[in-house]
Design a protein around this nucleic acid. Structure first.
Length: 258
DNA sequence: ATGGCTTTATCCTAAAGA
């Protein structure tokens, strides 16, 4: 059994105490981090090496940054797309033993519907879709996970009226989310918990956590080929109530026969 | 109507996040 997680930590160096607590509790095998906010040469490699994890990073200064850690060896890291070069560190694909492809994404936030950052977000998602379309999801073992910055439906939003016409819930964003599914990828949390909100993010402001005003924007997809192997998916929301927490909680799946 | 909180850096003010 393989324990796989995605977690937007909002600075890996500032959050190492929370990472330490959660790794001790859950003992994950593979973790995709987003918003590491650190250049590659300053990543806390030693912390992970001491605990038996291999590390692949794609970082940048101050903003963004993704990293994938695994108890097993990591090969074939890919950090950019030839068809759409991106100067922000938001994508990291690696291969694990048994030809398991693990794709870690930090989808742009977009800021607001009238912002140039929104245009960039939609273009970024189209580039991701172009990349995913080159992989046959019915034949390959693929995990796609990260902070998608999209609440796929109103079920994933604490108060859809408040979020009406805001970023993260627009038809254009949701359409691209559906396009990921149409390529043969399964939204694991929603498959296993069709009736639970499954919020993974709560605003630091307005007592968002205490009032449970959250969104489900962090997701683990598996390829159709892997669907039978995934029978467990969870949001580890208690991390959000810990000491100096990230505003995102880890989202996990467990794969059997691995 | 605005901002609330948290992090980083060109560090006490601004930008970005969602």
């Amino acid at each position: 059994m393989l324990k796989i997680a995605t977690w937007n930590v909002n600075s890996i160096r500032t959050r190492l105490h929370a990472v330490d607590q959660w790794f001790s509790d859950y003992q994950p095998d593979v973790v995709a981090f987003q918003e590491t906010k650190v250049m590659d040469d300053s990543f806390p490699y030693d912390w992970f090496a001491e605990r038996g994890y291999h590390v692949a990073v794609h970082g940048q200064k101050s903003y963004n940054g993704v990293a994938t850690v695994s108890r097993t060896n990591i090969t074939q890291p890919i950090t950019s797309w030839e068809h759409w070069p991106d100067d922000q560190a938001r994508f990291l694909q690696v291969t694990l033993p048994n030809d398991l492809i693990v794709i870690n994404v930090y989808v742009p936030n977009g800021q607001s519907l009238d912002s140039p950052k929104y245009t960039y977000k939609l273009q970024w998602l189209d580039a991701l879709l172009a990349h995913l379309s080159t992989i046959d999801m019915s034949k390959n073992r693929v995990v796609l996970m990260g902070d998608f910055n999209i609440a796929p439906t109103d079920q994933d939003v604490h108060d859809p009226e408040i979020w009406q016409d805001k970023i993260l819930v627009s038809p254009e964003e949701r359409s691209r989310y559906q396009s990921i599914c149409a390529l043969g990828m399964v939204d694991t949390y929603r498959m296993i918990h069709p009736g639970s909100p499954g919020f993974s993010w709560w605003d630091y402001r307005q007592a968002g956590w205490r009032r449970d005003r959250g969104l489900r924007i962090d997701c683990v997809f598996v390829s159709e080929h892997l669907r039978p192997a995934c029978q467990t998916a969870d949001v580890h929301r208690l991390t959000r109530g810990g000491d100096r927490p990230s505003d995102h909680a880890p989202v996990t799946i467990e794969l059997i026969n691995d």
